[in-house]
Amino acid sequence: MRSKHIRNTEGVKKHAQMKSQEAAQKVDQAIQHLIKTKAKINFNQVAMESGVSKAFLYNNQEIRNRIEGLRKQQEGLNSPQTIKRNMTDASKDSLIAAKNNRIKKLEKENKRLKDELLKLRGMVYDKF
């Protein structure tokens, strides 16, 4: 015969709820840290930073919406790699402009020296 014993699961439920709240706090701190450091915010980064599973992030609808919203906000912003690439392109452009100016100056000087040499040759030719 089966006994009609009802299991007391209140303690387990409270413990699970407490763990969930602690994980949510870790996630919140991780997101704040990622925002301060201007790091990319996505599920992988938040999971690594907070130490919680990605499944927890995806299953908790409030956290999921927050991460997705922050990720969308960051789409318009330039990443550090993009900024660095743009800086590199700008520095390349300035180097090219400086080299072009130097080439123009050297070509001018070369022409002046050729003209001067031509005049000196003419003077030497006239003496003989």
Rank of each mutant, 00 (worst) to 15 (best):
I6S: 08
T9D: 12
G11Q: 13
K13T: 15
K13F: 15
Q17S: 13
Q17K: 13
M18F: 11
S20E: 15
E22L: 09
A23Q: 13
Q25T: 09
K26F: 09
Q29N: 14
I31Q: 03
Q32C: 08
H33N: 14
I35P: 01
I35W: 01
K36T: 13
K36L: 11
K36W: 08
T37R: 13
A39F: 01
K40R: 02
K40D: 01
I41F: 01
N42D: 12
N42F: 04
N42T: 03
N42P: 05
F43C: 01
F43H: 04
N44K: 03
V46H: 04
V46R: 03
V46G: 04
A47T: 05
M48E: 14
M48A: 12
S50E: 08
G51Y: 11
G51A: 08
K54F: 10
A55D: 11
F56P: 03
Y58V: 08
N60H: 10
R64S: 10
R64G: 05
N65D: 09
R66A: 00
I67T: 01
G69F: 00
G69R: 02
L70P: 00
K72M: 07
Q73F: 05
Q74P: 03
E75K: 10
L77H: 03
S79R: 07
P80S: 06
T82R: 10
N86V: 11
M87F: 12
